[in-house]
């Protein structure tokens, strides 16, 4: 069996605020294999972005990683000093965000920004860096890379800006790309272009991609495996088709039922009652029990652990009801 490229073990992240401590991430475990597109899906506030930022140790103040291990190429990133992390960011693990316009520096040309990243990690001349940058843009299917390189970010469309971000992320040959809602700000036809591009990069370059998104449709169409996050915990994970076609956790089922589908036009959508917890008050037992129609006393007192749903052993869910219904 191949070793995972990245393994997150029992990750906890806390934000100390005046209103109390926000439990953003509560024991996340996940593994990303080489060349895999892995989906991390959940609603706002579920901890998906914070999990992504934790990998690069970029959790913003007042957030702190309080427990856990993040294994990358045999080393625990959480034990690495800041200086070592700087060598890893961009060089081995790169990240792109929802809004490329706010990630790019508006006062420098695109070419300047890409070459700067290349020269930060490799001892090459300006000219060499420029050529390598143009090569990366060309590789991403960007027409007329030289013109794009001489442009300022505001001169480019949203889709082109996101391609530039991807070029910056991959210009130094990163093995893992963390994509935090990379297409949420884009129109659907442009979203399709970017998703196609990410998929092509994964196949051609063997890049692993952690796709953080709220859109189950994006997951369904791009990811090999998926983890569903709720209240800072993975509540279900497995091969995408298994999780989305035969969801085992009531929350995953609820999310899927809430989606408008062509097969059930003009019928009431099934909403999940209640709202996402704020993360300050501790919920005893299963974090989903206050909103779950099937919750019983066990759910209110004991936190369920990830349990295999079927005989494959690849599809897991954290719910006390698993195995019960058949019995």
């Amino acid at each position: 069996m191949t070793e995972p490229l990245l393994r997150i073990e029992d990750l906890y992240v806390r934000f100390r605020t005046d209103e109390g401590t926000i439990r953003a991430v509560n024991g996340v475990n996940l593994e990303i294999m080489p060349g895999e597109m892995f989906g991390l899906v959940g609603e706002s506030g579920c901890g998906k972005s914070v999990t992504g930022l934790s990998i690069l140790k970029l959790v913003p103040h007042p957030g702190r990683i309080t427990r856990g291990k993040i294994w990358f190429r045999g080393e625990n990133l959480l034990e690495k000093p800041e200086s070592a992390m700087r060598e890893i960011r961009g060089r081995h693990i790169a990240m792109i965000f929802q809004d490329p316009m706010s990630s790019l520096n508006p006062v420098f040309t695109v070419g300047h920004q890409i070459t700067r990243v290349i020269r930060r990690h490799h001892h090459v001349s300006r000219r060499e860096a420029w050529e390598r940058a143009a090569g990366t843009l060309d590789d991403l299917g960007i027409p007329d890379p030289e013109r794009v390189m001489r442009s300022y970010p505001y001169e480019l469309s949203g889709g082109m800006q996101q391609r530039v971000m991807i070029a910056i992320a991959l210009s130094c040959g990163a093995e893992l790309l963390i994509a935090d809602e990379p297409t949420t700000a884009l129109d659907v036809t442009i979203q399709a272009q970017i998703l196609e591009l990410l998929n092509a990069l994964r196949i051609r370059r063997g890049v692993s991609i952690l796709m953080i998104t709220h859109d189950l449709g994006v997951v369904a169409e791009t990811c090999d495996r998926v983890a569903v996050l709720y209240a800072g915990r993975v509540v279900e994970s497995g091969p995408t088709d298994a999780v989305l076609q035969a969801p085992a956790h009531p929350y995953t089922q609820g999310l899927l039922n809430a989606l408008p589908r062509p097969s059930a036009r003009r019928k009431s959508l099934q909403a999940i009652p209640g709202s996402v917890p704020g993360g300050i008050e501790e919920i005893p037992g299963c974090p989903f029990h206050p909103r779950c129609a099937l919750a019983d006393d066990l759910c209110r007192s004991k936190t369920p652990i990830m349990t295999p749903v079927d005989s494959s052993g690849a599809h897991l869910a954290a719910c006390h009801l698993i195995g019960k219904s058949e019995g």
Partner: peptide
């Protein structure tokens, strides 16, 4: 075709503009 769909049966051959 560009709208990502959860159900495989409603998925269409993607036309990339």
């Amino acid at each position: 075709s560009a709208t990502p769909m959860v159900d495989p049966e409603t998925r269409r051959e993607r036309i990339i503009l």
